[in-house]
Amino acid sequence: MPPTVSPTTAGSLRLVGLTKRYRTGDQALSDVTLEVPPGQVLGLIGPSGAGKSTLIRCINRLVEPSAGRVFLDETEITALHAGGLRRARRRMGMIFQEYALVERLTVMENVLSGRLGYVSFWRSLFRRFPPRDIENAFRLLERVGLTEHADKRADALSGGQRQRVGIARALAQEPELLLVDEPTASLDPKTSRQIMRLIREVCAERGLAAIVNIHDVALAQQFMMRIVGLRAGRVVYDGPPEGLTPAVLTEIYGEEDWGPLKPAQTDEEADDAAGIPDDQDIARAL
């Protein structure tokens, strides 16, 4: 879906020629140009090492891009210095693989840490957050279904619960955009679907755009509005989830039997995809 969005709308993200080369010489991203309109939930797929995590981290500059520009609405994030960058980061909530909660802090402290960009060091040191922030944090915990766990330590929760805290922390920032890095990498299939659904719902409720790195193609097809495929730091697919044919998946990931992964396809295609590699397997076995 071609993004037709006026630059004044809140929460539209634009990447122009984004490039990242690590000091080790690894070219993680090559000239990525991408536009995400407000409210769009975009799935980023690609093999390990394709640059998905780097792309997400270049947006809030946890990783410094080597070239290219990032715009959030009018703000050029790549042009900001320390203070401005911190203020810009408040507008982008981030959700992590393995949750990245501060394990020894309480659930409430983890959620409130989403407000750190807004309060002074002394207030945060003594955990004296503004009443409005606290109220909002409780509301978010209710939204993700963890009200009674507010005073527990984060490491006392299960994986799915921890990721819900992670989502509440990101939402506490009152962001315009969510950056989501492999949110279900360590969750079972059922919990994964619950978490993905929750992310979809909160985005819809708040009109948030999101970029979601995701390993599981089936999950991406089920929950994403748009899919971008990365291979070796380049965009090789950009389109609707239905467009992920075996040919496209092969383009993104390389040759493989995509048989059981395809949901919306004709029977012939399914037979083709499943049949050919089977023959090859037999040939290899002989």
């Binding site: 809030n60 946890l62 911190r86 203020r87 810009a88 980061r89 408040r90 982008m92 909530g93 981030m94 992590f96 393995e98 990245a100 909660l101 501060v102 394990e103 840490s113 989403g114 407000r115 750190l116 960009g117 807004y118 060091f121 945060s124 992670g166 922390r169 920032q173 950056l179």
Partner: peptide, 15 residues
């Protein structure tokens, strides 16, 4: 990862 997550909220170095 925990430090990165806190930094991503816009927290200062001391925070």
């Amino acid at each position: 990862a925990q430090a990165e997550a806190v930094r991503a909220t816009g927290a200062s170095w001391l925070q």
